[in-house]
Write a protein that binds this DNA or RNA. Structure first.
Length: 282
DNA sequence: AATAGGCGCAACCGCCGGTCC
DNA sequence: GGGACCGGCGGTTGCGCCTAT
């Protein structure tokens, strides 16, 4: 509630604005104000913002103090670009929670609702505008799930493969991120009918063990059929177990267990065409 | 070098729900 | 019960920086 008598926007307010006889400052915070707020909170703790605003000597509203602390000054506020993992999690959570930014922020330690909201508006909604699609439409939601999330997933896994052949759980301790990754592949596979039946067979290095016989689950990129069984030869070229020849071959470069999966035998397989979700057949 | 336009982000606004008296 | 106050939330604004022309 703006009780200032003569301002309509932040930029139009001056230091001469008055509340209750005191001059109130608005707009960007100075270093001195930040220091004062940090000093006061270090001595008295957070909360009771209106009282804090009065007693600290800051010529700011309680709301303004709260916002400055929570969004900027609080020590655990994480700064810098959102990682692909975080972006993926935001997309996943937004699909479930909608614009409930504070709820989404609770799942991203160190990130504020304001930051996530800004990210959504500047990055995600911008895409919708460019595509002339309503960002709340089913069509856009589908686009996010089918295109954007798999791309982010690819980035996440590429980063991961660069660091370690197998999934490094020490860098991905959030099961929620794992869940978001799994869910990002929940859409039915987009099988490209123009794809050649024999897939590319470039040299694959750093080949990791893959299950002898695996059940392909799902992936928006690959041409494998869900719930069919595949095996591989000594070069890690995959083939359908019903076929005698190596048809539908894809070179597989690495395998990583799906952490947090309800199915312990689920693996991500990294290959020429992207990433596949497999279940070890027993 | 100047300028216009776009973008990112900090900060503000208005509303709402909870709490206290 | 209801009014006042407060904190939290989502939406919006506008400033400053960057980039393209």
């Amino acid at each position: 509630m703006c009780s200032l008598s003569k301002c309509s926007t932040a930029s139009s307010c001056s230091d001469d604005d008055v509340i209750g006889g005191d001059k109130l400052r608005r707009g960007p915070w100075t270093v001195e104000e930040d220091s004062l707020l940090i000093y006061y909170i270090s001595g008295h703790g957070e909360g009771r913002w209106n009282l804090l605003a009065k007693r600290s000597g800051l010529k700011r509203t309680g709301k303004s103090c709260r916002l400055r602390w929570l969004n900027y000054l609080k020590p655990d506020v994480k700064r810098g670009n959102l990682s692909p993992e975080e972006q993926l999690l935001i997309l996943e959570l937004h699909s479930k929670l909608g614009n409930r930014w504070s709820k989404i922020a609770q799942h991203l330690p160190g990130r504020t609702d304001n930051e996530i909201k800004n990210h959504w508006r500047t990055r995600v909604q911008k895409q919708a505008r460019h595509l002339k699609i309503d960002s709340n439409s089913k069509q856009f939601q589908e686009l996010i799930r089918r295109v954007w999330m798999p791309r982010l997933l690819q980035k996440v896994l590429e980063n991961n493969n660069n660091n370690a052949l197998f999934w490094d759980s020490s860098t991905h301790n959030s099961l929620e991120i794992q869940g978001a990754i799994s869910n990002s592949l929940a859409a039915p596979p987009q099988i490209n009918s123009s794809s050649p039946s024999r897939m590319s067979s470039s040299e694959s290095s750093n080949i990791s063990p893959v299950p002898q016989i695996s059940k392909y689950l799902e992936n928006p990129f690959c041409g494998f059929e869900p719930n069919n069984y595949y095996s591989h030869n000594s070069q890690n070229e995959c083939y359908h177990v019903d076929n005698t020849s190596y048809q539908d071959v894809e070179n597989l470069s690495s395998a990583a267990p799906v952490m947090g999966s309800a199915m312990e035998n689920n693996y991500w397989l990294s290959g020429d065409l992207g990433y596949c979700l497999w279940n070890i057949y027993e």
